[in-house]
């Protein structure tokens, strides 16, 4: 994942979670306590705004947003 993309995603997670992100790109944001059910929709909204993408309802599954790496893959796929 490009460094710039990763840093923008990390910045969004830090804003939504109000915590510093100290997890690796493949670690679960849920298990680490950074994201819960109610922060998740806010993060998706922030991703849409930051990257100018639209996340359709069919893609609103927690697995796609489980880690920084999975978020990065998803964002890249929507920007193609």
């Amino acid at each position: 994942m490009p460094v710039d993309l990763e840093s923008r995603i990390v910045a969004i997670i830090e804003t939504v979670s109000k915590q510093p992100v100290k997890v690796g790109p493949d670690e679960s944001l849920f298990d680490s306590g950074l994201l819960d059910s109610f922060a998740l929709p806010d993060m998706v909204t922030a991703l849409e705004k930051e990257f100018g993408i639209t996340v359709p309802d069919s893609d609103l599954t927690p697995r796609k947003f489980e880690s920084i790496a999975s978020i990065g893959r998803y964002v890249e796929s929507r920007m193609e």
């Binding site: 849920f30 059910s37 109610f38 998740l40 929709p41 998706v44 309802d57 609103l60 599954t61 927690p62």
Partner: peptide, 13 residues
């Protein structure tokens, strides 16, 4: 109940 999926969908729909 997959709470995360439920909340994600409900919060938008």
């Amino acid at each position: 109940m997959n709470g995360r999926a439920v909340i994600m969908q409900a919060t938008r729909k």
